[in-house]
């Protein structure tokens, strides 16, 4: 660091340092943390990724198309955060693979019957039987709506 005049100093920035900076990566292709002299203070900010994602290695992002879940506030275009590690239980919002496509519904288990419930009265309740190609893919942990 060289001091030229009072109050002004020019810091020689070592370009190679840039390569050593820890650049944060987020799975969803969202990146944050451009290396800057404020790097030391960045940890004090709020990191939504850390707040919303408890199990990063089993968490995936999805996007919603349709409006059968409007009653749960889930709208067309919303981003869904799904955790594959959590157990599927009655009453959970689940992402499942049903007869060739991914769907998001509320899981209802009564006795031996499995139902997928919409939360928009204009859509039917689906009764899952042995006839269906059905598997639960993950549990919804968070819905991100842009208003």
């Amino acid at each position: 660091m060289q001091t030229y005049a009072e109050g002004i100093s020019i810091v020689q920035f070592d370009l190679t340092q840039l390569a050593n900076c820890d650049i944060s990566w987020f799975d969803g292709g969202i990146s944050a943390g451009f290396p800057s002299p404020a790097t030391d203070y960045m940890e004090q900010g709020i990191d939504l990724h850390r707040e919303l994602i408890k199990n990063p290695s089993s968490t995936f992002f999805c996007r919603v198309e349709g409006n059968s879940m409007e009653g749960d506030g889930i709208c067309d275009g919303d981003i869904i955060i799904v955790d594959k590690s959590l157990p599927a239980k009655d009453g959970k919002l689940v992402v499942c693979f049903l007869d060739g496509g991914f769907v998001l519904k509320r899981l209802k288990i009564t006795g031996k019957s499995v139902y997928l419930l919409p939360s928009n009265p204009r859509y039917p309740v689906l009764n899952v039987t042995d006839e269906n190609d059905f598997r639960i893919w993950g549990i919804v942990t968070c819905v991100i709506s842009k208003k």
Binding site: G28, G29, F61, R63, G66, N67, S68, F102, L104
Partner: peptide, 15 residues
């Protein structure tokens, strides 16, 4: 697709 690496290519849930 880049299901896990590109926000524009994530799994689509038809609901």
């Amino acid at each position: 697709q880049g299901f896990t690496t590109n926000m524009r290519e994530v799994v689509i849930l038809k609901i």
